[in-house]
Nucleic acid binder design. Structure first.
Lengths: 202, 202, 202, 202
DNA sequence: CATGAATGAGGATTCATTCAT
DNA sequence: CATGAATGAATCCTCATTCAT
């Protein structure tokens, strides 16, 4: 009888191991040996399931994007208003809660750095960001409408919020002691609401 | 007759080369050979002037910090008001002008990633950020005073601005096409002013 | 009801796959995985039918020898004279016709290279060559007799013809563009006949 | 004081080592470690002087071509007639003498095999063969003239001689016991002269 | 100070072979 | 017989660092 394929499971293990190792040591420091050790697999097996190291990284980008999407959706499910949905988006990215995954944030920071000089990674990285920004733009438009404000300069607002989030990821990974505790999500929500408040009515 | 030491000049060349190479290839991709080639020096000479690769990186952090400081000071010199000084700070970090140095931004992003798993780098990286945040806090306090507002939640504001700036660095390096052109400085200034506007008076 | 063994069929598939893959990629490049893929079999199955990779190569030598023998025999069947039989031998090896198998020639070249440093392969390779040379020697002796010439220096002639054939194999595989089209068989036949012509009568 | 470059010397050592190792073990078997060991160098040094393994092989092709050329020229220097020059060419390739280099022949056989599936190698390999065939064609034309024969079918003759030589290389490497001793050069010269003898006069 | 050859410890990747199912 | 996951040794190549000159 043929063996049952466990490729998906193995790939998942390996991707998770890359995330964990990369969070500690960066992409360059995430050696195949370290990944295999973390996943408790033989090194050769990693290359049985992935063509090369970069392919694991690309899979990790997908995994993290899916994870962020899930966090947003589980929060948005309970939201009644545009305000709540917008806050769900921000909290999904920035809040520390029971579903927080510090490794994921650190890994995402490392991925950003890699995408600067690896076209394959950049492609998926940018695709994920573009999708998130598109979602965010829709949420903001709804929120502006809910508040009866003119939705001008939305692109800059979307870009600014995305910068804030990415920067918060970076600094929480590299300079945690310089940041106030649990400040990111409340601060960003506060900023955005004040911004909308001061926007002209329509 | 003793020959004049050219150590400082050489060190400067090497640090500049690291910045340039790192901007293109990241820290892991910045091999000593590549640095030496860029600096037009023999590889061996690099290790005469620096104990090891990390020491160059630490020197680069200092160099970039000094450069950012300079950009701020030359802009602040002409400032009359707290508002102008605050804008000088933001523009010094985010504006594209004749003194823009895209390599520097990219290199700073790579340094952030490194500092996540290299204690020596983290130390200087955090020191630079701490100094910048301290300066920013003073500027904000002045600006709040100038506007007659209560300076509450300053630390979160400082952290938020710093997140925005770091995030803008990252995204301009890794996802430039997703960002509006020249949006960062104006957007951040707008946000901050709206924030102050909506702050209670004292 | 006992299942009929399909071992012979499978072995044949695998040997054929090695021939095809080796023709393209050489012996070192003929990985078990590539062979299995070409034969549309699971990699593990290859080692069920063959102890190791070399054993497949040895089987391929036999297969190719048998194939060459067949080509000769089907041509020689119609031959009436020693001249025709000799020409059948040369054409069987060198002529391009409906039964041409370029993969077989390329594979034979690769086998020659392997036999230089693999005693097991060398043994079968030399055995095949020895048998062919023995057959050729008989054909030449008959042809000399038919022409009424003294069969002196037969061994050198046999060796020379064999060199020519092997060299034509090599060059048609590695330097086809340097060779005239379809020159090999006619040229060699011409040479041999002129050689016999100039041989002293007996 | 700057170190004196010894790159040419080292490259020569490494190429010679590849030739020796390849003669015994083939190209795939000529590991960098084995080459370095043979040359008594550290493995890393091999890659300091050559980008990769294939670059060594390409250098070896050049080296062997130069060597063959030298053998021909030193023999041709003493030649007075076209006949002697033609024999010099054949002897340079096939005769065993004080300047024989069995490793070179074996290495050339391995190179031929490689060139079948490595475009970079094929390019230089074919270039060498093309140059040799061009030289040979000129020599044959002179010899035909000297004998007062019509130089028809020269290309086929050139190709045939080249096949013979290549085949002699292969068989002397892979099946020496099947060949008569020192038969190759005399036999080929004999064939060629008989061929010319039987050529129509002009 | 300067040069560039030399070293050797990794690190990614390949692959024949084994083996549980 | 068949499958394909698993293993781990072997190999190419990179690169920080050293050092003789």
């Amino acid at each position: 009888m043929a063996r049952r394929s466990n490729t998906d499971e193995r790939r998942g293990q390996i991707v998770a191991a890359l995330q964990a190792v990369m969070a500690k040591a960066g992409y360059a420091g995430a050696t195949i040996a370290a990944i295999a050790r973390h996943a408790e697999l033989a090194p050769g097996l990693v290359h049985y399931h992935f063509k090369d190291k970069r392919e694991i990284l690309v899979a990790l980008v997908d995994s993290l994007a899916g994870y962020a999407r899930q966090r947003y959706e589980s929060r948005a499910a309970a939201a009644q208003t545009a305000e709540q949905r917008l806050q769900a988006y921000i909290a999904a990215h920035l809040a520390y809660g029971s579903d927080a995954q510090p490794d994921a944030v650190a890994a995402w920071v490392m991925i950003g750095e890699q995408s600067a000089h690896d076209p394959d990674v950049r492609e998926v990285y940018q695709a994920v960001l573009a999708a998130q920004m598109k979602l965010l733009k829709g949420l903001l438009r709804q929120r502006f409408a809910e508040r009866g404000r003119r939705a001008r300069g939305l692109d800059a607002l979307v870009a600014g919020i995305t910068c804030f989030i990415q920067g918060a990821f970076t600094l929480s990974t590299t300079a945690r002691p310089l940041l106030p505790t649990a400040f990111a999500a409340p601060t960003l929500i506060d900023w955005v609401e004040r911004y909308i408040d001061t926007q002209e009515e329509r």
